[in-house]
C-alpha cells in the first residue's frame, strides 16, 4: 500500500455492507434521509457536511462534499466561508480551553 488514502476507495464505500449488511442498510437509509431537503436546503446540508469534513479531516468526505456543494449550486466563496466556520470552531475550541489553563494557573501560582 503506497498511501492510506486512495480516491478510488471512495467508490468502494458500499462494500462496508459485507459483514454487517443490516447495519449498512440502516446507515444508508438514515444517511440518505439526513441529506434530503427539510428545514434546511440540500445545499445548506452539503455545506455543513463540507465544513464537518474539514473538522474531522476526512479526505473522502472533502472530495465528496466539495462535489456535492457544487452540484447543489454553491460556489467557492460559500464553500470557503463554510470551512472558516469549521476552522473558527476548531481554533476557538482550543482557545476557550485557555480558561482552564488560567483556572489551574490561578490555583497554582501566587
Amino acid at each position: 500500500m503506497e498511501t492510506y488514502y486512495n480516491p478510488k476507495d471512495l467508490d468502494k464505500f458500499a462494500e462496508m455492507a459485507e459483514g454487517a449488511p443490516k447495519l449498512w442498510a440502516k446507515f444508508s437509509q438514515w444517511y440518505g434521509a439526513v441529506f434530503e431537503a427539510g428545514a434546511l436546503s440540500e445545499r445548506e446540508k452539503a455545506l455543513i457536511a463540507l465544513a464537518v469534513a474539514h473538522a474531522v479531516q476526512c479526505p473522502y468526505c472533502i472530495d465528496a462534499y466539495t462535489t456535492a456543494s457544487l452540484e447543489k449550486g454553491a460556489d467557492l466563496e460559500q464553500m470557503t466561508e463554510a470551512i472558516h466556520v469549521a476552522s473558527a470552531i476548531r481554533g476557538g475550541a482550543s482557545l476557550v480551553h485557555g480558561v482552564q489553563m488560567k483556572n489551574v494557573n490561578s490555583k497554582l501560582t501566587m
Binding site: 431537503a37 440540500e42 445545499r43 462535489t67 457544487l70 452540484e71 447543489k72 449550486g73
Partner: peptide, 17 residues
C-alpha cells in the same frame, strides 16, 4: 451550465437563488 466537471444543481432550487 456547471463551471467545471460536475452535474447541475436542481433547477427549481437554483432558479430561486
Amino acid at each position: 451550465n456547471p463551471i467545471g466537471a460536475f452535474l447541475p444543481p436542481s433547477q427549481a432550487s437554483l432558479e430561486n437563488d
